[in-house]
Design a protein around this nucleic acid. Sequence first.
DNA 1: TCAATAGTGTCTGTTAGACATTATGGA
DNA 2: TCCATAATGTCTAACAGACACTATTGA
Lengths: 236, 236
Amino acid sequence: MTFVTFRDYLEGVPRSPTPYSVDAVVLAPLRGELAVLLQRGRARRRGPWALPWGAPGARERVGPAALRVARAALGGAPAWIEQVGAFDEGARHPSGAALSIAYIALTTERAALAVDEEGEVEWVPRRALPALPGRQGVILDAALAAVRARVDRAPVAFRFLPEEFTLSALQEMYELLLGRRLHKASFRRALHAARLVEPTGEWRSEGRGRPAQLFRYAPRKRRGGQRGVRFDLLRE
Amino acid sequence: MTFVTFRDYLEGVPRSPTPYSVDAVVLAPLRGELAVLLQRGRARRRGPWALPWGAPGARERVGPAALRVARAALGGAPAWIEQVGAFDEGARHPSGAALSIAYIALTTERAALAVDEEGEVEWVPRRALPALPGRQGVILDAALAAVRARVDRAPVAFRFLPEEFTLSALQEMYELLLGRRLHKASFRRALHAARLVEPTGEWRSEGRGRPAQLFRYAPRKRRGGQRGVRFDLLRE
DNA sequence: TCAATAGTGTCTGTTAGACATTATGGA
DNA sequence: TCCATAATGTCTAACAGACACTATTGA
């Protein structure tokens, strides 16, 4: 590996050199698939694709820095942002940082379609994702695994949907995130039992078929704790 | 201003004040409770209690650094170590680092009892935990929450047990981690259905009562995927 | 013998999944 | 009218939890 000069390093990216970078895995549902927002490699970087990243300012905390990076890539605020972890596997980060803090940022399909893909960024469907070089490949894999793992732990699915949504749209989102089909009646039974949504009172007619009632995310306190131990969820 | 080279930058920066610390939440079952290994505050620190922490060396990666910190506190290797995340909340870390990478380290009761508590460290039961000052309080809370969240996702309970264990011991461990009682027959039914353990063929007689068969952790491939969506696990 | 713990069989209420049916719009 | 989608009711197999019972050791 050839080291560039510190001058190049300073001009290249971070204003005050920080020892760690912040990397954002920006996700959205797009045409029935989960898609990741990738950007063209910056100047002097070979790889054509990279995760959006940045370096926190001297007094900037990593959370706000990640939000800033995601906003810059999206051209607007994501609906949700959450840390995945710290990574220092493999070769150094493109920024030269020894350590990289990874975040997942979620947004709606509507916002995803509004992104200017003529610019530096582009939505890449999960199935067509390139193998990102070095550490960013590890981060991307970990982020996608984290989304899947958190689907039934946190209201991740709702972050991908607009304020008001149909139950069919919600079910499709869960199916997309889980990668398998769900049973309609069971899905709705479990959803209502969990008291996670409430009807808005409005109905939406999209093309043919009976109009669907609109719901919003409105979690209520639940009586009783969970039961049993779900050994069937155990993974190595 | 004279620009140094990137190489100088890399060698220079992380040496004296490291920009990030590594903090270990070392956990073990102890006398029927989950306990955390805390250490007396270092020189020039006021707080009587702190999480074991360290600073990664110039070329040391955070994972090995965390293992080193946990080993030093325990006087031996933990059975398991896993990253929780990166934290920069609140006031600076005792080390002066802006960022702290937190790990959970698990070990058995046997190893916990072998720790020299006359030294700098001491096991503190979960119910008696002091409110750690500043960022370490956040890290401790997050680590305990992470353990609870990962119980039925990863074989966390097994990491707290020796190689060979009785099913009663395993159930007690799950009850300790989940904070609630489990039903014996259901527990065993679910456990065997998940094909996670296999009998060693030996039996252990501890005091009175019928001897218990010993098992080891031996996960086997499971047919069929999980069902349903566990909305009852959803948390804000 | 009793006490204590291990391990298993059976019953029952609950529920996930399957299936069927009704409801309501557009073409 | 037919078709497509929404929404819900009913049936059943599977299962979690409760309970009871047997098994096997030490005191």
